[in-house]
């Protein structure tokens, strides 16, 4: 009995010390990490907006997978919306900034935060990957799996099916949000 208690106390103390160490480092690094994410999102927003003017960003509540919304303008007229989307891939959650036209068709997208596998799911960070989905959402629906793409495109995304499904689902979710708002 005494042995069990001693063992438990030792393990508890080791865990407690490690937790305090991690919490202290988190306290110092969290603001910096947040700032890095904010900069990455701002750059991604510029990239998906192209030559459109960027409006004010507002937080989106009560719609799963859509975190923020930013209106995009051309000559003062609203022509689209950029959304900050969240989804889930092979390595955990990820964030995507995606722009849609007023009907909900995807104009551009960029993955900003992710923990996908290098050489496999990480391909989603590259521009050609998101280009596979551009134009989808209205006349053409988002693919539910890589097999829904052409043979050449399937070969490009092979080896990371979970990431592909997660990205496609997140982008479809964004498109649905725009369509629901447009009603």
């Amino acid at each position: 009995m005494k042995n069990t208690i001693v063992t438990s106390v030792v393990l508890f103390l080791i865990c407690a010390v490690c937790a305090v160490l991690c919490a202290s480092v988190n306290y110092v690094t969290a603001p910096r990490i947040e700032e890095n994410i904010r900069i990455a999102n701002a750059e991604a927003l510029k990239s998906v907006a192209g030559d459109l003017e960027i409006g004010e960003t507002v937080a989106v509540e009560n719609y799963e997978g859509v975190k923020e919304s930013t209106d995009l303008y051309k000559d003062g007229k609203k022509v689209g919306t950029a959304l900050l989307l969240s989804g889930s891939g092979y390595g955990g959650s990820f964030s995507i900034i995606a722009s849609y036209d007023t009907k909900g068709a995807l104009m551009g997208a960029k993955m900003t935060v992710d923990s996908e596998t290098a050489g496999l799911g990480k391909k989603a960070e590259e521009s050609w990957y998101m280009d596979l989905f551009v134009g989808m959402g209205v006349d053409k629906s988002f693919p539910s799996a890589p097999k829904d793409l052409s043979a050449d495109e399937t070969a490009l995304v092979s080896g990371a099916t979970v990431t592909f499904k997660g990205v496609s689902k997140a982008l479809k979710n964004g498109s649905d949000y725009i369509k629901e708002g447009a009603k």
């Binding site: 480092v25 690094t29 969290a30 990490i33 990455a40 992710d114 923990s115 596998t117 290098a118 960070e125």
Partner: peptide, 22 residues
């Protein structure tokens, strides 16, 4: 490893992104 991850994410974000899950 968690401490290293937090430090890299804060001060070397491009390397943090490149190493990913590894």
């Amino acid at each position: 490893v968690t401490i290293l991850e937090m430090l890299m994410h804060a001060y070397m974000p491009s390397l943090y992104d490149a190493l990913g899950i590894y």
